[in-house]
């Protein structure tokens, strides 16, 4: 996308970072028409307002995600796209993947699914954009996963899938303003990148 797509006025810029995993979430994300949501894609963390992370970030990649997040100017919002980005998914607990973003970085919006369908991604991002534009009351409530995400099975560390696959729920997370967690200004990153709230 380039700037000529943008309507007058500033659009929120999105940096999509595929942090690992199988790439399924990135495939579905590619089907989401960002301009229709008032978003425009960027390649540079310093330009980005939203950081969308998909895939299970490996132990090494987590450092890159933190670096990108730290480089972004405030206000900034972190979106975990898919189960792998949220908590590591099927790869959680291997020697290469510790877990997801949950509990490590202040996630504003978690979109569960493996992978979530484009409609679910579109609705969730749309809700986030509307909340940001409306100046949602940003609070320092701890990161909350949506009810749908809670219902999904969470593998224990080191667990391997043992049963037939569960059908993917493609729920639309209900985004309460409370679920929005800005990094600014209280959520400074400490030395190891974790939120020191």
């Amino acid at each position: 996308m380039n700037e000529s797509d943008a309507a007058p006025g500033r659009r929120l810029e999105v940096l999509h970072l595929q942090a690992g995993g199988c790439g399924g979430c990135a495939l579905e994300f590619a089907l989401v028409a960002l301009p229709g949501l008032g978003l425009v894609e960027t390649e540079h963390p310093r330009h980005a307002d939203l950081l969308v992370v998909s895939g299970a970030p490996g132990r090494e990649m987590m450092r890159a995600v933190r670096a990108a997040w730290t480089a972004m100017a405030e206000p900034k919002y972190l979106v975990a796209l898919g189960d792998c980005a949220i908590e590591g998914g099927r790869f959680r607990g291997t020697y290469a993947v510790e877990g997801g973003l949950e509990g490590r970085l202040p996630v504003a919006l978690a979109i569960p699914g493996s992978p979530p369908a484009p409609d679910a991604i579109r609705d969730a991002l749309g809700a986030l954009v509307r909340a940001i534009e409306a100046g949602a009351t940003l609070s320092d409530e701890p990161f909350r996963r949506t009810a749908e995400a809670e219902a999904a099975p969470t593998p224990a560390p080191g667990a391997v899938p043992t049963s037939a696959p569960t059908p993917v729920p493609t729920p639309v997370p209900t985004l309460a303003p409370l679920a929005l967690l800005p990094a600014a200004p209280r959520h400074r990153l400490s030395g190891d990148g974790s939120s020191d709230s």
Partner: peptide, 11 residues
């Protein structure tokens, strides 16, 4: 490469 390695062979 290597950032997307997940250790599938071991899993």
């Amino acid at each position: 490469l290597g950032a997307a390695h997940r250790g599938i062979a071991l899993a």
